[in-house]
Structure formats: C-alpha cells, structure tokens
C-alpha cells in the first residue's frame, strides 16, 4: 500500500473527527489571539481530549457496524487508524496554538 493510499484511507476513516477537530482548533486559535495565557493553552488541550472522546463515541454509534472491515481487509486495524487520527488532530492543535502564541504572545 502506498503512502498516498494510507493517507486517503486515514482521511476516509476519520473524516468527521478531522472536521470537528479542525473547527475546534480554529476556534481555540481565534480565542488565543484575543489574549494569551498559559492556562488557556493547557485548558484547550484538556477540552480537546473531551471533544475528541465525544466525537469518537458518536462516530462509532452512527457508523455502519461492518464499515470497519473495509479498512481491516486492507491491513489497517481500528487501533492503528484511531491512533493516526488522534496524532494528526492533536499535532494540528499544537502547531496552530504555538504559531498563534509566537505571533501574538
């Protein structure tokens, strides 16, 4: 499997989580531009974990129960996919907040 395919499949699996995560990240970055504090930076990550968990739960509830086998058949386990989504999502938040902090802090 090529890297392009892997990225495509990760996006296909975590689309909703990525979109909700991106929206959350942008709102946090916007709030951070209004006034910087370290506590906000930390709170943003704690709330992010809560939002992530809720989104994950809802996506699992509404996704067809056999949809995961498309990915499993291609050699990607649920754990691997979820870990990729989590890493990208949190990395994006960290990069975005740090960039805003350096610019406005």
């Amino acid at each position: 499997m090529t890297l392009r395919d892997r990225i495509y499949l990760t996006w296909s699996y975590g689309k909703i989580q990525f979109l909700v995560g991106a929206l959350y990240n942008i709102v946090c970055a916007q709030l951070l531009t209004r006034g910087f504090s370290y506590s906000f930076y930390i709170d943003a990550f704690i709330l992010k974990a809560v939002v992530y968990a809720i989104t994950y739960y809802l996506v699992r509830q509404f996704r067809g129960r056999d949809a995961i086998f498309f990915f499993i058949n291609l050699g990607l386990s649920r754990r691997k996919l979820q870990l990729s989504v989590l890493l990208v999502d949190f990395l994006f938040l960290a990069i975005l907040l740090t960039t805003v902090m350096l610019k406005h802090g």
């Binding site: 056999d66 949809a67 058949n73 386990s77």
Partner: peptide, 22 residues
Amino acid sequence: DRQIIGQYIKYLPQGRMLPENI
C-alpha cells in the same frame, strides 16, 4: 498478529463494508 489480519484473511461481512462515497 490480528492487527494485520487483513493481509491473511479477506472478510466479506454481512452488512455494507464499502464507504458510501468511494
């Protein structure tokens, strides 16, 4: 290793497997 079981066994589930948009 069940993390990569798809390389050894391909499974057709009872319900829809393919994503709707693919």
